[in-house]
Every structure is written in structure tokens, then in C-alpha cells.
Write a protein that binds this DNA or RNA. Structure first.
Length: 488
RNA sequence: GCCGCGUUCGUCUAGGGGUUAGGACGCCAGGUUCUCAUCCUGGUAACAGGGGUUCGAGUCCCCUACGCGGUACCA
């Protein structure tokens, strides 16, 4: 059986787009499921568009996400180099283009940009599809030699054969295209660089790529690639085109304008890599049953290209948030602390001090309500600095000032005198018994206490907070609350 | 313009001739509860339209509409 080899082949034109993450993820899952390899190849054939530093940025983002490539520009591999400009410098593409010419599958074209432009506008005016008119195919061999010798600027074009071209896409099914709708694509540019179409075919073949997984904007040019494979006499790899990930309007592809498209930004905003990956995997793929939560290993086990959808999927932040919360809740608090530290989320907390409380216990308190890791700042702030709250919020809506005062005084006394171990559950039992003895309802007693220790109407359980704060700090906060309630 | 691809609840989706069209997120209601969150229970809501084929169509075929993509010496 052939070992499966997949690849992700970005152009280094900027950051890693969330759509690129899904493409890579699927390629990764397929490879891993079949114990194959995934390679990273940099397609920098357009020098004008190449952005310095973006290769590093992309590689770094994959690191953050926990997706490891088996081969690529940094780790190398037996099919290198993995950057097309380096391959170009080896004369690789030129050689193959020459072979194509010798075999009559391609030809030199000396047409100027101007001529091509006027040709196209004429065609469009005549409502014809714009297509190269094969002017240079009429050139005699001698004329070509002469122009070449004179150093005239030229490109090499594919000579699209007669007939039709068919390929089978694992997602979209069999697609047949009449060749007369295909343009004589430029294969090698006048600067000596290959176009995408030439480079991708040669490199995928040379790197033994078995499955080409990419966005469906490539469907229309796939027939040209198939023609090239045939011209070279190479096997055509399996193609699987992926539907787009849509922006909030549900129509256009998710783009920079829509805000969060940088994969790295999601990490910075407090999404766990596995949650993000899980969510993205489900955008266009499903296992066929009702399971929705998959860690990476589970994704690998369950993934198959056959279950990838054809139509675009909108990126729904609401569900991502839900899923992120699922992962946060199910992650051990100690691990969470490490991630939180790594991304400096604690820095948002004024007066934060790492050893003031047992930090993983703080996470225990909040993680069930955190949709992102970044939420810890707002949530845990009151533990480090008691907010200056309105005295009136100490009074439960169905209670009175007098009862609230009583509750707070009783709480103060009980804490001062009790020998109950300072553990949430013990405190809860003790306080519940006491409040019953003084005829206060839970709300009348616990609401004021909770507001006193948290400074907020909304917070976790009062006794959990007290346990964390400790006896001294609890007493201090009760003292403040008593001052406030007396001022009413 | 031409070529291609797509269209099931608001969203992600299941479904491949016979289903009360299922699940999840969201939303609404109720329960638990000192609040919020969590959790539990229930509810709301969809086959783009029109023709066929068939005893019977989300499901197969055709047309239309809408959307997206391609149509570069960009990927």
C-alpha cells in the first residue's frame, strides 16, 4: 500500500489564515490516520507578493496550534528543498518546461503585455471568453531560435490539447471540462520563475504527494494540472477540494475585514488550540454521528475526506465560544494555569500576585464560566482588589436593611469565633445551621455575605470565595461591608 | 459575458426514494440555586422555486432564482 503523503503549500504573503488552518488540519488528519506524512512547502514563486518574515510567522503559528509537519523548510526531509524559490535556483522548473517544449506540450510565447491586453479586451467586447490566441504558436522554429538568441523576453505556455479532461475529486465528485474552455496557461514566467500551475504539479509529483487538499477556488485550474501530469506521463494524485469558510454575511469568504482570521489571534484571545481545531474540523466535516467534541487523536481516528461537505460554512463565533468553554471546563486547572501564564492572561489583573492564592484553585472557581482564557481577568479581579461597590447591592431584593445588617454582623461573629476548618463545605454547613437558628433565609444571609466578599452581585459561591480569600481577608471584607450597610 | 461549483432550522449539520425530517450552538420556558455561570427538562425553527421520473421524492433528472468561485507572466 502506498504511504499517504499530503502537504500544505502556502504562499508567504502574510499571516496564517483560519481557512489555511482547516486545509492543513484535514491534510494532517488524513496523513496521520494512515500513518503517512504531511509536508510544508513554501510557494514563493511570486516575488512581488512575498512578504518578509511570513514564513516564520506561519511556522510559528502551526507550532502554537500543535500541528507538526514531518517535512518542511525548517526540519528538512528527503524531498527538499521545500521552498520553491530554492528549487527554482536549481534550474528545476526550467528543465521540466524545456522537456515539455521538446515533446510538443508547451511553446515559447513572446507576446507583450500590451498585446495580450488588447487581445483580451477585444475578446471581451465580442463576448468571447478571454483566451490566448496562440499567435506565437505560428512562429517557425528558426524564428523562435532567433528571438531566443536575441534575448527577447518570453514565457513558456502550456499547449492545451484537444478533447476534454476529467478528474475525480474526493469531495466534489467527477468533474469533466472541455479543453477548449481552457487557456494556454503560462507555465514559466519571463523572470524564470514557474507559475503556480507548473510548480505545483512538478513539486507534488517529485515530493510523492498522494493527496492534494486545497481550497475549491482551485477546481477550475485542476484540469490544466491534470493535462500537465499527463504530458509528463505522471500519475495524477487524488484531489480533494474544500469548500470555503464564510464570513459573517454567509456569502463571501472569511476575510481580514471580518476581524478574526489570523489563527494566531485566536490563541492570543484565549482559545485553546484543541478547541479551535475541533471547531474548525467541524466546519465542513462531520463524523456521521452525533459526536461533536474531538481531541486531536479522536479527530485523527474519525476523519475521512469522504465526509467533507461541498458547500461553504459560516464561521460561527458563538459556537466556538461554547466549544472553547467545554474544553476549558474539561482541562485540568493546573494545565490551564500554565497556558494562562504562557499567554500572560494574568497580567490583566490589577494587583495580581501569583502566590497570594493557590492559583489553580482560582481557576477551579472560574473555569466553568470562561468562554475564553482572557476572561480570567475580569472574573478573578475581585479576589485581588475588592471593587468599590454600591452599599445598596448588599441587600437581597426580597430582604431588608435590618436583616442584611444582622446577617453581616452574625457572619462576622461566627467567623471570629468558629473553630470550623476553613474549607468551603465545612463553612457552608456551619453557616447554614447558624442562619437557620437566627431565622434568616439562605438568600437573606448568603447574598449579603457573597456581595461582601466579592463586591459584586454576580460571583461564584460565597463559601468557595471565602475559602480562597482566607479568614483574615474575609473578615476585612465583612468589616467594609458593615461600614457600607451602616451608611445606608 | 463565458465556464465551473453550491443551496436542509438564524448557524454548524444528519439524511442518499417511504422519516412525526434527527443532533448541536443560539434563543425561549421551567427545574436546581444566595446571584451569575454550570447542570437537567421541555419548546421554537428548515428541505430556495418550478417542472418532471416514480405508487411514493430533502433524497433521482431538467429548468429558474440566488450565492460563491474561476476567467493573470497572483496564488
Amino acid at each position: 500500500m502506498n504511504t499517504i503523503r499530503t502537504r500544505f503549500a502556502p504562499s508567504p504573503t502574510g499571516f496564517l489564515h483560519i481557512g489555511g488552518v482547516r486545509t492543513t488540519l484535514y491534510a494532517y488528519l488524513l496523513a496521520k490516520k494512515h500513518h503517512g506524512k504531511i509536508v510544508l512547502r513554501i510557494e514563493d514563486t511570486d516575488q512581488k507578493r512575498t512578504v518578509a518574515g511570513s514564513i516564520e510567522q506561519i511556522i510559528n503559528t502551526f507550532k502554537l496550534l500543535g500541528i507538526d509537519f514531518d517535512e518542511g523548510p525548517t526540519q528538512g526531509g528527503e524531498y527538499g528543498p521545500y521552498t520553491q524559490s530554492e528549487r527554482k535556483n536549481q534550474g528545476l522548473y526550467q528543465g521540466y518546461a524545456d522537456t515539455l517544449i521538446q515533446q510538443g506540450h508547451a511553446y515559447h510565447c513572446f507576446c507583450t503585455a500590451d498585446r495580450l491586453e488588447t487581445m483580451r479586451s477585444k475578446q471581451q467586447a465580442a463576448k468571447q471568453p478571454p483566451k490566448y490566441d496562440r499567435e506565437c504558436l505560428k512562429l517557425s522554429k528558426a524564428a523562435i531560435e532567433q528571438k531566443l538568441a536575441a534575448g527577447e523576453q518570453h514565457v513558456i505556455r502550456l499547449k492545451v490539447p484537444e478533447g476534454e479532461t476529467t478528474f475525480t475529486d474526493l469531495v466534489y465528485g467527477t468533474i469533466t471540462t472541455p479543453n477548449n474552455t481552457l487557456d494556454d496557461q503560462v507555465l514559466l514566467k519571463s523572470d524564470g520563475f514557474p507559475t503556480y500551475h507548473l510548480a505545483v504539479v512538478i513539486d507534488d509529483h517529485l515530493m510523492n504527494i498522494t493527496h492534494v487538499i486545497r481550497g475549491n477556488e482551485w477546481i477550475p485550474s485542476t484540469p490544466k494540472h491534470v493535462i500537465l501530469y499527463n504530458a509528463f506521463g505522471w500519475d495524477v494524485p487524488v484531489h480533494a477540494h474544500l469548500p470555503p469558510i464564510l464570513g459573517p454575511d454567509g456569502k463571501k469568504k472569511l476575510s481580514k475585514r471580518d476581524g478574526d482570521v489570523r489563527a494566531e489571534d485566536f490563541i492570543a484571545k484565549g482559545y485553546l488550540p484543541e478547541a479551535l481545531l475541533n471547531f474548525i474540523a467541524l466546519l465542513g466535516w462531520n463524523p456521521g454521528d452525533d459526536q461533536e467534541l474531538f481531541d486531536l487523536d479522536a479527530l485523527i481516528q474519525n476523519f475521512s475526506l469522504e465526509r467533507v461537505n461541498k458547500s461553504g460554512a459560516k464561521f460561527d463565533m458563538t459556537k466556538l465560544n461554547w466549544m472553547n468553554n467545554q474544553y476549558i471546563k474539561n482541562t485540568d486547572s493546573k494545565e490551564l494555569v500554565a497556558v494562562l501564564k504562557q499567554n500572560n492572561f494574568f497580567d490583566q489583573i490589577d494587583n495580581f500576585s501569583e502566590d497570594r492564592y493557590e492559583i489553580s484553585r482560582v481557576l477551579d472557581l472560574f473555569k466553568e464560566r470562561m468562554q475564553t482564557l482572557a476572561a480570567i481577568g475580569e472574573l478573578a479581579q475581585f479576589l485581588y482588589t475588592l471593587p468599590d461597590y454600591e452599599p445598596s447591592i448588599l441587600v437581597f431584593k426580597k430582604s431588608t436593611n435590618d436583616k442584611t445588617l444582622l446577617a453581616l454582623e452574625q457572619a462576622q461573629q461566627l467567623i471570629t469565633n468558629t473553630t470550623t476548618p476553613w474549607i468551603a463545605n465545612e463553612l457552608r454547613t456551619a453557616f447554614d445551621a447558624h442562619r437557620e437558628s437566627i431565622n434568616l433565609t439562605r438568600a437573606e444571609m448568603f447574598w449579603p455575605m457573597r456581595v461582601a466578599v466579592s463586591g459584586s452581585e454576580q460571583s461564584p459561591d460565597v463559601f468557595d470565595i471565602m475559602e480562597l480569600l482566607g479568614r483574615e481577608e474575609t473578615l476585612e471584607r465583612l468589616r467594609i461591608s458593615l461600614e457600607k450597610i451602616k451608611s445606608l
